[in-house]
């Protein structure tokens, strides 16, 4: 079955939706929020941002609330909020799976052996 356009959000998309969770914002405020939240790890380019805003508006994840000169302010819609929550849950499941796997490997000692470069005896 073909994927829906925004079935899996990229990291940038995810953070843009997160930003709108704070309330209505314009593009520049979104970038500032993301930089602050990720401590500068994600520095979003302007083209990436306006492509995401355009796509989200098209998918009805956000809606325009006001226009002041060249500045447009958007707010998240209920559809956007659902998409954001689903993505959070998906990521939480990913993290939970990864944590469980790491714990299991730790208890079996495999991780320790691999770290020390020891061969596992086949017998």
């Amino acid at each position: 079955m073909p994927k829906k356009p925004l079935e899996n959000l990229t990291e940038s998309m995810f953070y843009v939706l997160m930003a709108f969770g704070r309330g209505p914002m314009c593009g520049i405020q979104v970038v500032e929020f993301i930089e602050e939240r990720t401590a500068g790890r994600i520095q979003m380019g302007p083209a990436t941002l306006y492509t995401i805003l355009g796509k989200f508006e098209q998918e009805n994840y956000i809606e325009e609330v006001s226009v002041e000169g060249r500045k447009r302010t958007y707010q998240i819609t209920s559809r956007g909020m659902i998409a954001y929550r689903e993505e959070v849950e998906r990521l939480q499941r990913c993290v939970a799976d990864a944590t469980a796997e790491m714990t299991a490997r730790l208890y079996s000692g495999e991780s320790l052996r691999q770290e020390r470069g020891l061969q596992v005896c086949p017998c």
Partner: peptide
Amino acid sequence: AREMNTDPKVQALA
């Protein structure tokens, strides 16, 4: 100035 595009997957969408 930062790059215009920082997410290739979003650029693919564009």
